[in-house]
Amino acid sequence: MTVGVVVFPGSNCDRDVRWALEGCLGLTTRFLWHEDRDLAGLDAVVIPGGFSYGDYLRCGAIARFAPLLEGVRDFAERGGPVLGICNGFQVLTEMGLLPGALTRNAKLHFLCEPTMLTVHPGACQWLGGYAEGETIQLPIAHGEGRYHCDPALLDQLAGDGQIVLRYADNPNGSVGDVAGLSNRAGNVLGLMPHPERACDALTGGIDGARLLSSVGTV
């Protein structure tokens, strides 16, 4: 079981994700440089948080064109599990693997705090370890995490069970309290909160551990 961790210039949670997967959960990881194309032998791919390519133009806009992401798109379209955390979620929306967009927080503040989330796992492979309606705590750390899509799409996403994580107390103005979205097939998950920062009881909770360890079972 090997998990690829994408590394862009400007990624800053890649080592946190590696630590959580290896140090806390005992999985094997491989860093994937943005110019690489080889995804052979990987069982899952994580696009971590940070500021890919400085987040120039828009968050995730330049990353979308990285050679590596052509392979990640193929991997996802073949059903491979792909997880985008924070900037990784922004990249997944820019790539079109998840619908909608992430924009500046409603009150402009960079938010770095614990948040309570309600989990609606549905068909999402990454959330198989959680019960429907369960409340968990994960930290957020973002300035541009306000999810936006038009009302018709929001209704459709809700109806299809793709809004798999909702804020209990919406911190950033996201429509529909969206904190995390799954694709319809359930193998791609994007979320603004950081599960990798909630895998060690010594550093504030382990509610993220079941999410990251799910790659061992998908």
Binding site: T103, R104, N105, A106, K107, L108, R146, H148, D150, G173
Partner: peptide, 13 residues
């Protein structure tokens, strides 16, 4: 430009 339906917090500030 941001679409008219999208909140512009920086513009408001």
């Amino acid at each position: 430009s941001l679409r008219p339906s999208v909140l512009d917090p920086a513009g408001e500030a």
